[in-house]
Computed example of a mutant assay.
Amino acid sequence: MFATVAIIGAGPAGLLLARMLHKAGIDSVVLEHRDRAYVEHRQRAGMLEQGTVDALRACGAADRLDREGLLHHGIELRFDRRSHHLDFPDLTGGRSVTIYAQTEIVKDLVALQLREGGPLIFEAQAVAIEQDMVTFLRDGVEEKLSCDFVVGCDGFHGISRAAIPDARTYERDYPYSWLGILADVPPSCAELIYAHSERGFALHSMRSPTVSRLYLQVPNDTDPDDWPDDRIWDELDARFAVDADWKLMRGPITQKSVTPMRSFVTEPMRHDRIFLAGDAAHIVPPTGAKGLNLAISDVVILARALERWYATGSADLLDAYSDTCLRRVWRAEHFSYFMTTLLHRAPGQTAFDARLQLSQLHRIADSRHAAAELAENYAGLR
């Protein structure tokens, strides 16, 4: 089997890259370890920067997003029992963000790939990567996929990163996790709420007009079974509390999970004809809502570089790929670190540290310059 580009991983990054290459007349094969049902129901982030929306529209993958996505013009910060709204269009020169679940992006891209694109092979486990070949297992049988280029979009636990020799890694583990829930109840807010409290961090998000997504800061190694539904709602109520007429709507919780908080970057993101994209190369804590958007940014840059190579023979964009991506990655890492350490209460945190957090939050609420800095990073740097 031969493909001009072999793509390992059928998450948003791998699927969007395949779609963009298809639109540019470059063939590819996507290998995915899991089955289709698993891939389409894997819960991940759902906040899209404008650049991500633009990329999906440009390749014809945004019809349902444009109908069902929820346009948000800002976020709400809560601390000291008060609420502060950040108006993104006003602070950023017109930019906003869109809520549209990653599961739905994947479903849209899978449907397009199967209908119009090259092969998308589920339950195909990549086991070895060379510069011009990927070895994979399908139905227990070893097969070879020859190619011009290999792109690893197989996530943090995939095999692609190991194919980059002499890679340097940088990482940080945080002393807390998120207990996340999906609930069949309309959101209690028009836009996302980021809450800082003495009890810890909380986030109110949504998946649709009828489904809410909420998170609580919890200790590492928390067992979701130790959190019955009433305990979760009571704790959310306490952390979101404000001295205003606002009520947290409760409903049936349909899913619970615990997500550890981690930052990770590997450099470089390329070796010869092997490229990394998305979580295979970098992880950010979800507080800054950057993970999905960084993955999309990576493959947009790579698709343009490959298109230039096949159209003109110029390798300049391919040669610049790693450095170009990493500049944005490190900016996102810093912003995610800033948001995470600003809003969470660390174990053993002193009263002095807590006052520093509140000082910074008050500055964001009171200073247009500080608010604009947060808004520009959140909405996505150009």
Rank of each mutant, 00 (worst) to 15 (best):
194 Y>H: 12
215 Y>Q: 08
211 V>M: 10
213 R>F: 06
176 Y>W: 11
190 A>F: 01
215 Y>N: 12
206 M>F: 06
202 A>D: 05
211 V>F: 00
188 S>M: 07
179 L>Y: 04
198 E>A: 15
199 R>L: 15
180 G>I: 11
184 D>A: 11
203 L>E: 07
197 S>C: 07
196 H>M: 00
199 R>P: 05
207 R>I: 10
184 D>W: 00
208 S>I: 03
197 S>M: 03
182 L>S: 12
199 R>N: 11
184 D>G: 11
202 A>H: 05
204 H>G: 13
199 R>Q: 15
184 D>V: 03
177 S>F: 01
174 Y>Q: 02
213 R>Q: 09
176 Y>S: 12
199 R>I: 10
206 M>D: 02
203 L>G: 13
186 P>A: 14
175 P>F: 03
213 R>P: 02
205 S>Y: 02
211 V>W: 01
189 C>P: 01
190 A>M: 08
191 E>H: 13
208 S>K: 08
202 A>R: 07
173 D>I: 01
203 L>I: 12
211 V>I: 14
196 H>K: 12
209 P>A: 09
178 W>P: 02
179 L>M: 04
208 S>T: 08
216 L>Y: 08
214 L>F: 09
216 L>Q: 12
215 Y>T: 10
172 R>G: 01
194 Y>E: 09
177 S>I: 02
182 L>K: 15
183 A>H: 05
194 Y>S: 09
181 I>T: 05
197 S>G: 10
190 A>D: 14
207 R>Y: 07
216 L>S: 13
192 L>G: 11
177 S>C: 07
193 I>G: 00
184 D>Q: 13
175 P>Q: 02
178 W>L: 15
211 V>H: 05
177 S>T: 03
183 A>W: 02
201 F>W: 10
183 A>F: 04
189 C>V: 14
194 Y>T: 06
181 I>S: 05
210 T>K: 05
186 P>G: 10
176 Y>G: 05
202 A>E: 06
188 S>C: 04
206 M>L: 13
216 L>T: 09
181 I>Y: 04
198 E>W: 04
206 M>G: 00
205 S>H: 06
210 T>G: 02
191 E>C: 06
174 Y>F: 10
188 S>V: 05
183 A>D: 03
172 R>V: 09
188 S>D: 02
214 L>Y: 07
189 C>M: 14
173 D>F: 02
196 H>W: 09
206 M>Q: 13
213 R>M: 07
173 D>V: 08
214 L>H: 00
195 A>F: 05
181 I>C: 03
183 A>E: 06
181 I>M: 03
188 S>L: 04
188 S>G: 10
196 H>I: 00
206 M>R: 09
190 A>C: 08
201 F>K: 14
210 T>I: 00
193 I>R: 14
210 T>P: 01
206 M>Y: 03
197 S>N: 03
179 L>E: 05
186 P>V: 08
214 L>Q: 15
195 A>E: 06
193 I>C: 11
184 D>P: 08
200 G>N: 09
174 Y>A: 00
200 G>P: 03
202 A>T: 06
174 Y>E: 00
173 D>R: 12
175 P>L: 06
198 E>C: 01
186 P>L: 11
199 R>A: 11
182 L>C: 08
203 L>C: 15
199 R>Y: 11
172 R>W: 02
184 D>L: 09
201 F>I: 13
178 W>N: 12
204 H>Y: 10
189 C>K: 14
178 W>S: 11
201 F>A: 15
190 A>L: 09
172 R>E: 01
